[in-house]
Design a protein around this nucleic acid. Structure first.
Lengths: 131, 131
DNA sequence: TATAAAACCTGTAGCTACTACAGCTACAAG
DNA sequence: CTTGTAGCTGTAGTAGCTACAGGTTTTATA
């Protein structure tokens, strides 16, 4: 049941150093300690840590996760708030996708200039450099 | 013709502090100085800086840009090398897009759980927290 | 011409989210 | 009894800026 940091790391997929880092930031509560001073975690730590990891996987910032954790562990979390919050986040993700798609397009165009055309320097660089 | 840092910033769209930062990193050569010690830039600085900015806009790292600059200013830049380099970068952009699309999908699913279902806590958080 | 505002200078510290040491102790296996 | 693994603390490094503090210089206005 109770775990040391290595097991917790394996179970949750969060690096040991990162777990300690989250503790410093108070994203997870201070665990108990064994006699030798080793951290001892309970199931609730594992849950919280997995939550954080899932949120990170969705590109939420640690500040955002702090808010989500508060909400998740509140007595009556306001679903409406979370929804609004998450919609904004979804918009952000979509904006990032749009930006990257633009880059992809430009890169593709630049690369197509490259084809065959190798006699006089690099057209790709020329376009970027001469503007 | 010769510009002070403010004008260069306006012309290239790179923040003043960033220009000085790039100088520290030797991404742009040290400019001349006026009598009072103010930086004085030439057209070649502007060109180089714009190149950096365009590359940043394509998500190239400063280390990558360093390489591209070297190549761009070499006597006979190897187009084949640049092409290979850029293809790898394009792959990276595409990988990022894929990741973000996955996130987008997940977020959409999570948000759809939210609809209407507000009586018993927040399903979005439940999935992340209990999942 | 006086003065105030804007622009410049250097140097340092802060941001995000980790990651990587150095240098130590604890503990289990052979 | 030694060796290896796992844990500990504390600090510094990473990328790419950004934001001061505390000073000088230039420029615009009264």
């Amino acid at each position: 049941m109770l775990k040391k940091i290595g097991e917790l790391s394996l179970k949750t997929g969060v690096h040991i150093e990162t777990i300690r880092y989250y503790e410093r930031l108070r994203l997870i509560p201070k665990p108990g300690r064994s006699e030798a001073g080793h951290r001892v975690y309970s199931e609730s730590h594992a849950k919280r840590l997995s939550f954080i990891r899932r949120c990170r996987g969705l590109d939420f910032s640690l500040a955002e996760i702090r808010y989500l954790l508060q909400t998740a562990e509140a007595d009556n979390p306001s679903c409406a708030d979370v929804e609004k919050f998450s919609k904004k986040h979804l918009d952000l993700i979509r904006a990032k996708i749009r930006d990257l798609r633009k880059m992809e397009k430009t890169m593709k165009t630049l690369l197509s200039e490259c084809q065959g055309n190798r006699a006089l320097g690099c057209p790709l660089i020329d376009v970027l450099y001469e503007g």
